[in-house]
């Protein structure tokens, strides 16, 4: 189903409750009554077309790649990606850790043994994710924002200075997403295939549910970077290189 501006915001969430975390990133909370998506977006000063693209892309992965997202300023996309980061770090990961720690408190040694293995694995995953995110936030995103500004200025002198100042190009931005995704996949496989949960099965189901949601959201995030952000940054970079004769 393709989401449109005249749909009620509440209906959107009712049909896919995972979108709750998406609207949260836009600063929208529940209690939205019968208002349409257009009305809610206007109230929160969100460009409704942008909101629709994000929601549709999340709802239906094959909705990508979208030509429409190309028409939005990069800073809008970057600021959305920033918010997805805090969703992972401040909400999802602590929640998964809390569930695993619950198992660590068990009185059965075998439960503790298995849970501590999973906990260690998950910790290596999260520290890798944190590094990746820190790099994006400190280096990659600021570079992109600056690049867009310089590109929009259409001023050769400004471009020249920028190129001298920033040696970085987007190609150097190592794509370690893949290994990160593989770790998450492995945690899931290990739990599903090789853990005998005994009485703790409900906690394991919850952990799997949370990991699955995190995985889905990260995939969506990666798609947006690979299919929208990176190609546009490349385009701007090559424009700059032509203009500055590099």
């Amino acid at each position: 189903m393709i989401v449109t501006a005249s749909m009620k915001m509440a209906d959107l969430i009712i049909q896919n409750h995972h979108l709750l975390s998406i609207i949260d990133r836009f600063g929208i909370q529940i209690g939205i009554g019968e208002r349409t998506i257009a009305e809610v977006c206007e109230q929160h000063q969100i460009p409704v077309d942008f909101f629709l693209e994000i929601v549709n892309a999340f709802n239906d992965p094959s909705f990508f790649p979208k030509r429409n997202l190309d028409s939005f300023p990069l800073h809008l996309i970057v600021s959305y990606l920033f918010k997805t980061h805090s969703f992972y770090l401040e909400l999802k990961i602590p929640e998964i850790e809390r569930l695993i720690k619950k198992l660590l408190d068990s009185e059965k040694p075998e439960t503790v043994r298995v849970a501590s293995l999973i906990f260690n694995f998950f910790s290596t995953y999260t520290s890798q994710l944190r590094d990746h995110i820190a790099r994006e936030e400190k280096i990659v995103y600021p570079y992109i924002l600056k690049l867009e500004e310089v590109y929009e200025s259409k001023d050769s002198a400004v471009m020249e200075t920028f190129r001298k100042e920033f040696q970085f190009t987007i190609d150097e931005y190592e794509r370690d997403h893949e290994d990160i995704e593989e770790k998450l996949y492995d945690i899931k496989s290990l739990i599903i295939k090789y853990v005998l949960p005994g009485e703790d099965y409900l906690t394991y189901y919850k952990i799997l549910g949370q990991i699955d949601h995190l995985e889905q959201d990260i995939n969506d995030h990666t798609e947006m970077e690979n299919k929208v952000l990176i190609p546009r940054v490349r385009m701007m970079e090559s424009f700059l290189n032509q203009r500055t004769g590099q």
């Binding site: 694995f121 995953y125 290994d179 593989e182 770790k183 996949y185 492995d186 290990l190």
Partner: peptide
């Protein structure tokens, strides 16, 4: 095993 990473 269907496990790809060293940690896994």
């Amino acid at each position: 095993l269907g496990i790809k990473t060293i940690s896994g």
